[in-house]
Design a protein around this nucleic acid. Sequence first.
DNA 1: TCTGGGGTCCTAGGACCC
DNA 2: TCTGGGGTCCTAGGACCC
Length: 434
Amino acid sequence: MADSGGPRLPGAPDAEERDRIVVHVDMDCFYASCERLREPALRGTPVVVGMGYEPGDDIGAVATASYEAREHGVESAQAVSTALDRLPRMTAAREDPDTDVEDAGYYRPVDMDFYESVSGEVKAILHECADTVREVSIDEAYLDVTDRTAWEVADGFARHVKNRIEREVGVVASVGVAPNMGTAKVASDRDKPDGLVVVTPEEVRDFLAPLDVEEIHGVGPVTARELRGMGLETAGDVAEADPRDLKAAFDSRGRELYERARGEDDREVTPKGDPKSLSRESAFAGPVTDTERKREQVRTLATAVADRAQREGALYRTIGIKAVTPPYDVNTRARSLSGPVDEPDLVVEVALDLLGEFADTPVRKVGVRVSNLSFAAGDQTSLDGWRTEGDPSATAGENGARNAGKNSARDDDPQVDGTEAGGRPSGQMTLSDF
DNA sequence: TCTGGGGTCCTAGGACCC
DNA sequence: TCTGGGGTCCTAGGACCC
């Protein structure tokens, strides 16, 4: 497979792009489906999964709402207080004769461990159905199935994947099939829930054309507003716009926008590599000025992040914080060390130091992050089972402390961090080192 | 929409080096 | 010692995604 990333002849069909068959699998209201798996009584009724719906526990948002709950106006990312207004808790409704039980729903707390385990079962099936799988998130993945099927029978293939998930795991997925990732993603979204949409290479342009610009993957509210300002309302409008205008308005992203709108996308489906950063954050119920409260929260988050890094075998070279100040200004501060470390105390120390700048500022949310990660090869903390499969080259050179892997070409910089990095971090790095 | 949590990628400016 | 150009690293912020 000579993959020349090079320029294409204008007007010439891109053979490789043409030939690829990409499947996008997207579980429908996944968390709610998981809850129904272990509590079948929840089937067919409104289910809301989120944090903060317990009385007195008022910060939190909806993580997932079942389609029945959505009919009552409950949406993902909505404040739980709003959700409760639109859909009272079933338990409360039952006790309150004035509330109609028909208009109430079930609320359940997020249980990531359980969802991860269900997700693992689904992903195992996906890996059986394709040679290359890119797991995007807990409930979403791309499959390159070029070698497993053909356009004439792609519909049956997708049906097979979908049915297996439903039969063997018990959750419902929407599936999109297209010649590239961007279009497959839109296709899986098209007929949710329980959708199955195949877009052949010939159909791509017509399929995308009528869609609102915001449905293009990668176009959010900001870009959509700008596009509309240019008189471009649909993907078809963008596809027929002058690329130079897009370039002028969006710089290098303009070209990408233009291509996505036309269903041109030559990104290959590749397994997801190691994470680039790990973070934890949490919001206060209201703006907090008290310095010690902020510090306490940051200490907790820093400890949690460092803990997780340790469990995942990640060394970090940069430690940062986030402080969200009213109305909603996101401030980030970060400090890099001279070499990658695994030093929980240092994470706390640096995070608190960086927080100092906001000591007298009201803050509504704080976060701690480690980045510039490197993973010591062979250091198997053996969390996710299948992760090691996709990337045999990563461990090639035995436990190379200096070269984390090919995917970090940008990061494993030339000067090899010599001293501190080479050996095992030994614990004497302190703030005075900066 | 008045805002939860965990990520990714991109850009711009400054520091620094040659 | 008033001044060119190229490159990399770091920090901060923004847009976007699930």
